[in-house]
Write a protein that binds this DNA or RNA. Structure first.
Lengths: 333, 333
DNA sequence: GTTAGTTAAGAAAGCGCTTTAAAGAGGAGA
DNA sequence: TCTCCTCTTTAAAGCGCTTTCTTAACTAAC
């Protein structure tokens, strides 16, 4: 492997000059510049990023930790985010190093500790913990951290997430305006801000339209296909509801499977609205109405804030960005 | 930031001893070991991975380059692969750095060049080029490279991909056994091994069952939702086919959308089989029969081979692994 | 001709770690 | 007592860069 020394020797200059030519950090006369470039080409020189990182204390690497569970459909959401992040990060000359917490706090903390070794210049994380204090021991402030999608209790740092409340409110209100008074609400575990916000949207829509919220219509459970199926079954079999709002895509699929199996007519017998928008929702019969999250944009915005922090240092006032969700009406309502 | 020097000073030993304690690379007496560990804890010491990489010439980072197009559903396949790779890589103490070629050769080559800087110990790539010679200038052999999912012409290095042929053959034969003689084949661009292999499976199944392949029933196009819709429309409207095989999931969705729109009865009027298995295929009406790819396993196997290469050095005989695809029969046939 | 100011480039230190060569302490054998 | 091992530890070089401090060469000013 050729080093900066070899280049310097061939170009007959010092290593300092080569470095300055590469980075444009000091004026170098045109003639020597040419000599250096020529030498670099001749030797097929590739700067060693590791050495550069060590000396300059910048790795040009951004860490990303997402909570993906094997074969879980909710992954699509985080994948879309990862995709957005990767694209922007590359545009800015950074690299993305990917970590997965598998929705497990211990794994997540391990992951963070690994990053706590001068490896990354900044971190974007969709946290699994419900309370910030869980992170006290691992975040030492060596690099900026941006939270996405979820807000643990007590967190007051930079944050980018979708406004789950808004989209849900619109969706529920649409159902109410169509005459539905018994609306089932199927959700993953509460306690997570995303779930809580959606529930709040559900309740506020009822409130505004002078409907009372019936607690038995709110079903909480593991965010899985099976659980979605089960909850839908319970609500529908009791004839308790005329419509369903399912607050994540995995459970939506489970619920849809139940309705399909029982040949329940959508939306005539039961209207249904899901969360997150994916192509497959267009090909169910009928197409599924959903609350759409701006996944790519979440990633985009998070990178934006992060790079600013890296450049300007950690400032006092933190950003808390809520990107709008949108209700998309389709045949299922 | 505390360094190995600080630890050495506090523990009253040399930096060499600290290094050996951390890495277990030499015998150190129990008493000094204890002193060192204590000092490390006291100072909250975290080894600097960058410095370690520079000195030991190993970054413990694996590169992964996938061809994902924004909002394209085929991404799910690569994301599943990435997920598998990330999991295994972490288990083995490595990190994953993610690159996206966006299905564009120039971007891909840039990406590789970036990695050619001592940044990674090995690379896994789903290549975009149709011919290996495209990679001649960038692969200098500094680190092992494993190709996945696609085999460019002339490539004879390590390779892990699904046996597209096998699954397709089974699927087509199933259709034939059910009495179908006019089977439409909708595919993305040919020239890519994955597409070609599927077409071969289609042809061989015809051959074996003494059916002639009608070229007009084979439709090639951009792998997009719209194109899938269009091709299905053409084939069905001409009443040319009684069944459809769609060789990727995006086009499958397009085709399904068409059949749904026209209220064509599946499988009575048209039977249909897709490629890649995702949860949403279970909730279409009727559930969609598919050829399933072992995406997670592809990632898993690729990492396995790669780490072996890293450990043992590049050996002569390369591995070419074909993982089985499986035909899953559901209501749509 | 001397001094000061300006410009381009070099010398060398050092980032935090690994690793080789060497050294000190203690015991055994003569 | 001296030599020769063995066992544990240390000293120090160096990975490939960046960056501070200097220097050399030239020009301008008096």
């Amino acid at each position: 492997m050729t080093s900066i020394k070899d280049v310097a020797k061939v170009a007959n200059v010092s290593t300092a000059t080569v470095s300055h030519v590469i980075n444009g950090t000091r004026f170098v006369s045109e003639t020597t510049k040419v000599r250096v470039f020529q030498a670099m080409k001749e030797l097929d020189y590739k700067p060693n990023l590791v050495a550069k990182s060590l000396r300059s204390r910048k790795s040009m690497i951004i860490g990303l930790i997402v909570p993906m569970v094997y074969m879980d459909t909710s992954n699509f959401f985080f994948m879309a985010i990862a995709n957005g992040i990767e694209t922007i990060v590359k545009q800015k000359g950074y690299n993305l190093i990917l970590g997965n917490s598998h929705e497990d706090l211990k794994t997540e903390l391990e992951q963070i500790k690994l990053f706590n070794t001068q490896l990354i210049d900044g971190l974007i994380i969709a946290p699994t913990a419900e309370d910030v204090t869980e992170y006290d021991e691992v975040f030492s402030g060596d690099y900026p951290v941006i939270f996405i999608d979820r807000k643990p209790k007590g967190y007051d740092g930079d944050l980018v997430m979708a406004n789950s409340y808004q989209g849900t409110f619109e969706a529920i209100e649409t159902l109410i305006k169509k005459g539905h008074e018994k609306i089932g609400f199927i959700t993953g575990h509460l306690g997570m801000t995303t779930s809580d916000d959606r529930l709040t949207g559900y309740k506020k829509a009822h409130e505004k339209n002078k409907l009372t919220v019936e607690p038995s219509l709110i079903k909480e459970g593991t965010p899985s296909f099976e659980e979605g199926y089960k909850q839908a079954k319970e609500l529908v079999n009791k004839k308790a509801v005329t419509s369903l709002f399912v607050s994540n895509n995995v459970m939506t699929m489970g619920a849809l499977r139940f309705l399909n199996e029982k040949q329940i007519k959508i939306p005539d017998e039961i209207a249904i609205i899901g969360f997150d928008d994916y192509d497959w929702m267009k090909i169910t019969t009928p197409p599924l109405a959903v609350v759409e999250q701006p996944s790519y944009e979440i990633g985009e915005k998070a990178v934006h804030i992060l790079l600013n922090r890296i450049k300007k240092g950690n400032e006092r006032n933190k950003e808390s960005v809520l990107l709008p969700t949108q209700f998309i009406s389709r045949g299922s309502v």
